[in-house]
Amino acid sequence: MIIATIVLAVSVAAGCAGLIALAARDGRAYAIAAPLLFGALLLWCWEVVCLGFGVPRVLLPAPSGIAQAFVANLPTLWADFVQTVIRAVVPGYLIGCGAGYLTAIALDRSAFLRRGFLPLAGLLGAMPIVGIAPIMVMWFGFDWPSKAAVAAVMTFFPMLINTVAGLSTTGALERDLMRSYGASYWQTLLKLRLPAALPYVFIALKLNFTLALIGAIVAEFFGTPIVGMGFRISTEAARLDLDVVWAEIALAALTGSACFAALALLERAVLFWHPSFQKFALSKP
């Protein structure tokens, strides 16, 4: 107990000193190192507190215990991952984002429909949409289609709203230029307006993956076959097997962050021409 207190105090002091030193310097490497050190310090303190003060495992397992549980339960975790992410989240995400994108382009043709739909879409988008999970379970059954449906509905509105906003970003000057080239509506759309809308589309794409993951996991609380991340979390939590629950949460967090990072890289690759990704972009005054 005393040793743990000393270790904790020393590591917190050393860590803080290190953080202050790192944060005081400019440069990309330091900007990456500082949060990494912070995360490592947090994990270390968690470990020391759990082991040193004998925190019961049913309350908070130590990171090392979670890591062990992660490795020991790899086959289960993989089965849950396939069920929840590959079977439910990915199709739901693709369907929801695709439908939102296409609906936005369709609405773009008619000012009347846009004025009619957009306020309602904004309203619906602000609603607690996860609540439709029990209805979807009733309609599409216990297996993955109902989870994919929740994910699709949840991702639809952000994509729709963002794409519509993105399509309206092109200025009169650019559109006039396209007109002077004699470009048709579709040419203007494909060559000017859809590329210009891409930054907005990527905002929705990055935001939506987590939404889809949340939708699928919450939908599993309403009934599932005996596999899946949401199912595992709720049943293992009820059995007080918190190592496994934390391992599952770590898996969900890794999935969410990895997909976010992948989408951010894709954005960089696709939008290399956009001012916000130019190296010598004009900075904000």
Partner: peptide, 13 residues
């Protein structure tokens, strides 16, 4: 990027 809602059952338990 973490589906925080997933930890709801655990926090409650």
């Amino acid at each position: 990027t973490i589906p925080v809602l997933a930890i709801a059952p655990m926090v409650v338990v």
